[in-house]
C-alpha cells in the first residue's frame, strides 16, 4: 500500500460545504496571527512594566515582580493554559463562572489562550528588560536623578529608551517564540493553524499534505518576522555599541 499524494485536496469543499480545506487553513492562520500578535502586545506592556519594577529601589515591588517571573517561568505553558481554561472559571464565584462559561466557546478559548500566552511571555520579556536596564552604566540613572528628573521620568526619558534598543535582538527571538507557542492553544480546541492541520488529517486522511502546508506556513511566519525585526534592529541600533548578531 503506498500513499496517494493529492495536493488538490485543499481546493475541494469541506463536508458541510461552507468552505474549502484551504479556507480552513487560512482561518487557522488568521487565528494564529491574531492570538500571537495580541499576546505579544500584552506581553510587551506587562513585561516592560514588570521589568521596570524589578529594578526600582523598593524591595516589595521588586520582590513581587521577581515572584511573578518565577511562577510563570517554572510551570509548563501547557499546564498554565489548562489552568486558565479549565480551572479559573471554577475558582470564580459560581454565578460569574457560569455566566463566563455560557459565552461563545471560541471566545472562551481565544481569551484563555491570549491571557495565558501574554502572561507567560511577559515573564520572559520582563527578564530581558531587567537585563537591559542592568547593562546600562549606573551613571545614567544618577545623571537623570541629578538633573532633577523624578524616578519615573528617569525611566521614561533616560533608561528605557536605551535599554529597549539594546535588547531588541533577544526580544526578536521571544517574538518568534510567541508564534510557536500559540500552537499550544490547539489543545483547548482553538481552531488555529496546528488544530486545523489535525482536523484536515481527520477529514481528508491526507496527512502529509496537511502537515507540510502548515509547516510551510509556520516557516513563512518565522521568515517574515525575522526579516521585519532585522529592519527594525538596523534602524534603532545604538551608535557605539557592537551591533549584536
Amino acid at each position: 500500500m503506498s500513499y496517494n499524494w493529492n495536493w488538490d485536496i485543499f481546493l475541494s469543499p469541506t463536508p458541510s460545504g461552507e468552505s474549502t480545506y484551504l479556507g480552513w487553513l487560512l482561518d487557522g492562520l488568521q487565528w494564529t496571527l491574531t492570538l500571537s500578535l495580541g499576546a505579544w502586545i500584552m506581553a510587551l506592556v506587562l513585561g516592560i512594566g514588570l521589568g521596570v519594577l524589578r529594578t526600582v529601589p523598593n524591595r516589595l515591588l521588586a520582590g513581587s515582580a521577581a515572584a511573578y517571573v518565577e511562577v510563570f517561568r517554572n510551570v509548563p505553558l501547557l499546564v498554565q493554559l489548562f489552568i486558565w481554561y479549565f480551572v479559573l472559571p471554577e475558582l470564580l464565584p459560581t454565578t460569574l463562572g457560569d455566566a463566563l462559561k455560557q459565552t461563545d466557546p471560541l471566545a472562551q478559548q481565544f481569551f484563555a489562550a491570549l491571557l495565558c500566552l501574554g502572561c507567560f511571555t511577559a515573564a520572559r520579556v520582563c527578564e530581558q528588560v531587567r537585563a537591559g536596564i542592568a547593562s546600562l552604566p549606573r551613571g545614567q540613572r544618577n545623571a537623570g536623578l541629578a538633573l532633577g528628573l523624578t524616578l519615573p521620568q528617569t525611566y521614561r526619558y533616560v533608561l528605557l529608551p536605551m535599554a529597549l534598543r539594546l535588547i531588541l535582538p533577544p526580544l526578536t527571538s521571544e517574538f518568534l517564540n510567541v508564534f510557536k507557542n500559540s500552537a499550544v492553544a490547539s489543545t483547548i480546541g482553538l481552531i488555529e493553524l496546528s488544530r486545523q492541520s489535525q482536523q484536515l488529517v481527520d477529514y481528508t486522511a491526507q496527512a502529509y499534505e496537511a502537515f507540510i502546508a502548515v509547516t510551510v506556513l509556520y516557516v513563512l511566519i518565522n521568515v517574515l518576522v525575522m526579516f521585519g525585526m532585522r529592519l527594525l534592529e538596523r534602524r534603532t541600533r545604538v551608535p557605539g555599541y557592537i551591533g549584536s548578531k
Partner: peptide, 9 residues
Amino acid sequence: SQNRIPLIQ
C-alpha cells in the same frame, strides 16, 4: 477519534 485512522494507515 481524530488520530485512529492515520495511525492504522
